[in-house]
Every structure is written in structure tokens, then in C-alpha cells.
């Protein structure tokens, strides 16, 4: 139980850091649009970034065509 005398202050420090992080996140506008990021992860518009060999066959053709 004596370890609590150490653990409790440690948790206080961690919490302070967490709050500072939160403040930074709120101020830098990360919570301004809560809708778009939730959707944007579903848009697989990163085909161009995938290595060629792992791209689906049909899509490769399209992606190359698009880049032209």
C-alpha cells in the first residue's frame, strides 16, 4: 500500500500532461470539424499510393489512365 505514496503523485503528473495535450488539440482546431474525418477514412482514394504489384488488376489500368 505504501507504493500509493509514489503512484498517486505519478498519476497527478500524467493527468496534467493529458490536460495540456487536450488544450493543444482543442486550440489547434482538431475538434473543429467532427464529421469529415470520420467519413474521409472510408474513401479509398489512396490507390495511387499503393505499390503497383498489390493494386487490384482492374484498378491499375484505371489509375494509370488517370495519371496520364
Amino acid at each position: 500500500m505504501d507504493s500509493l505514496f509514489l503512484l498517486v503523485p505519478v498519476s497527478v503528473i500524467l493527468i496534467t500532461i493529458a490536460v495540456l495535450f487536450l488544450r493543444w488539440a482543442v486550440r489547434s482546431g482538431q475538434y473543429d470539424d467532427l464529421e469529415k474525418p470520420a467519413h474521409s477514412i472510408l474513401f479509398d482514394d489512396d490507390r495511387d499510393m499503393m505499390p503497383k504489384e498489390s493494386q487490384p488488376a482492374e484498378d491499375t489500368k484505371e489509375a494509370t489512365k488517370r495519371r496520364d
Partner: peptide, 17 residues
């Protein structure tokens, strides 16, 4: 609203502790 969000965060963390 931004400040309120931070207030909520602080209150939430304080509540848990």
C-alpha cells in the same frame, strides 16, 4: 464552444480521478 470543449475535458478527467 472551443473553450467549453476544454472545460468538459478537464471536468471529465477530474471526475474520473
Amino acid at each position: 464552444q472551443k473553450t467549453t470543449l476544454l472545460r468538459i475535458g478537464v471536468a471529465g478527467i477530474g471526475m474520473m480521478q
